[in-house]
Every structure is written in C-alpha cells, then in structure tokens.
Amino acid sequence: MINAVLVFNNSGQPRLTKFYTQLDTSVQQRLISEIFTLVSHRPASACNFLPLPPLLASPSPTPPGGQPHADTPSLITYRHYATLYFILISTSTESPLALLDLIQVFVEALDRLFENVCELDLIFNFETLHACLGEMVVGGVVVETGLEKVVGGVREKGRVRMRREVQGMGMGGLGMGVGVEGLAGIGRGWR
C-alpha cells in the first residue's frame, strides 16, 4: 500500500502532505526534510527511486537479500516536474514502475483540472489538490488510475467548487493570504 504522498517545491516547502498513518506533526516535518535533502541532491539523470531516509531506514534494517517485511515502507518513488517534487512512500507490495505512472496520472489530472497547472494553483486550491488525491488513493489503496474518471470524480464535486467561485473571489483572497502567511512563517520570500 501507499504510506504517504508528499509534494514539495524546489526549496523544500511542502505543498501537499498526506500520510496514510497517523504521525506527529514534528515527525512529519522531519521526514519531509530528510526526503527533501535526499531528493534535492540528485541529478536529473538519476533514477526515480530513493534510498530510505534515516528516519525510515533505522528501525528495521532489512537483511541483505531477504525480502523486506511487506508492511514496512520500503520504496520511495519520486518525480520532478518543473518546480515541484512528487513523492510516494510505499511498501514493497506496490510496483515501482506503476507508481511512477500513478504520479504521472496525478499530475495529468491536476493539469486537466487547473488547465496548465503551476505551483500557484496548488497553493490557492490545495483543497482541490486533496480532493483529487482522494479520488485516486483512499487509505493507501489505489482506487482509480483512469485519468478521465479521476477528473470526473473531482469535477463532480468541482461543481461545488465552481459554485463557490462566486464567493470564490474571497477564496482567492484567502489563498493569497494563506500563501503569504505560510511563507512568512518559514521565513522565505515568495517568488
């Protein structure tokens, strides 16, 4: 199963965090920063699989040659799109190449939903981002991989979203406010 879905940008600021097990906020942050340090040092030509970060690797050293226990997260797959990293942490029961496809579907679905998606869209509409992920993965189990159905599923509620577009101006303002606040909290300028 999939243990976590993370999206962060090139400077390590999270844009989406979804853990399918309950974790303390501080642990989540540590994990994100560990993965970010791993991922940001990789050249573009490298493969899309990460070694386990220390936080995940230390508790259960897998015996060499032996299969890791199927419950432990053992696979970190990532993909880099423009300014964003998409990370999937999963157990060995998932197929690595299929997970890469899954990220691709996720990004394509976002692209359809936002029409030429960029990082800003994800900040201002991160609720939609969550909804989209919710259409694809529920509780760590992949429930849908068809692009059309994912987009359709979000749009189904998207009507609701559009309806709110009226008060949506306010929503946009909120997004801006959130963006500024959130970034100020980290102490980094918005670019």
Binding site: L16, T25, V178
Partner: peptide, 30 residues
Amino acid sequence: LKLIYLEMFGHDMSWASFHVLEVMSSPKYQ
C-alpha cells in the same frame, strides 16, 4: 483552511480539534 495550510508547514493544530469537529458537522457541503 488556513490552519490546515499552516499545519503542513509543521505548526501544531491539535488544539483546534474541537473546532474541526464543529466545522465537520456544518450542514453546508463546502
């Protein structure tokens, strides 16, 4: 919503759990 966003950056929001419940029980879908 803002709180959720901040939580993503590592700010604890466990103190707000009761408010979360309140919003959850709102009759409006959004």
